[in-house]
């Protein structure tokens, strides 16, 4: 099962192009634009900031691994074949989730490695940063499982997650900086799981333990809630 699910994901060439190739191009482009902005931060600082935003964004799009895998296995005639096997059907859900998490996390590491190698970005508290990125991927993939169990079609789940990512990025002020106000200050931290991850990442990078606790805490609660909810929804799908 390990070999099969891994092969299945690794053979998705288009997925790799979109989830690795496209953010690499975007990061490079945004860093070079940033270079020409007056009073811009040093390139290695800007590259890390831009790189992390794109990593979070594409972790969200990487959720497609889970909902496409689960759609194939449980929202198509394939379901009968798997349910007929002696294995408990939840094992196929776990396999989909586990390998989607691994592949998406590996993609995040490639992007992080790129900003480090190419732009010389310094990443303080690397282990903490890597751990938070992993939590981000786990949340995104569990959220994807929840989405497919709710919407039952990958195309609808894709639309939902795209709207979520765009909305979350706008609210967080990642696309365009928002004017300072009580609301935007709140939104930068609390408005979505994407900002929770970002808050925890910069907590580690800028040595602010309280931000780490807040971000990781919110994210952990989010993971538990989404996991339990998805598990509950899966019962009707797998029966």
């Amino acid at each position: 099962m390990v070999r099969f699910y891994l092969l299945r994901l690794l053979k998705d060439t288009i997925g790799h192009v979109i989830l690795i190739g496209l953010p690499l191009v975007l990061i490079t482009l945004m860093v070079s634009i940033n270079r020409n902005v007056p009073e811009a931060p040093p390139v290695e600082v800007a590259a890390l900031y831009i790189g992390l935003i794109y990593i979070l964004m594409f972790q969200g799009f990487g959720a497609a691994y889970t909902f496409e895998g689960l759609e194939h296995d449980f929202f198509s005639p394939f379901k009968n074949r798997l349910l007929m096997s002696p294995l408990h059907p939840m094992r196929f859900v776990y396999a989909n989730l586990l390998f989607s998490i691994l592949v998406s996390y590996a993609q995040s590491l490639v992007l992080l490695g790129y900003v480090w190698l190419v732009f010389g970005a310094q990443i303080p508290n690397l282990v903490g940063v890597l751990a938070v990125l992993l939590l981000g991927v786990v949340f995104a993939q569990l959220f994807a499982a929840w989405l497919i169990f709710v919407f039952k079609k990958a195309a609808r789940a894709q639309l939902a997650i795209t709207l979520y990512i765009i909305g979350a990025m706008i609210l967080a002020g990642f696309f365009v900086p928002l004017p300072e106000s009580a609301f935007t200050r709140w939104a930068r931290i609390y408005s979505s799981p994407l900002t929770w991850v970002h808050h925890a990442l910069y907590g580690f990078i800028e040595h602010r333990p309280e931000d780490v606790f807040l971000g990781v805490g919110l994210l952990s609660v989010g993971i538990v809630v989404v996991a339990l909810w998805a598990a509950r929804l899966s019962k009707s799908v797998l029966s």
């Binding site: 099969f4 299945r8 198509s76």
Partner: peptide, 8 residues
């Protein structure tokens, strides 16, 4: 229905 993984 044909239930094999087409990519593998």
């Amino acid at each position: 229905e044909i239930t094999v993984y087409e990519e593998l």
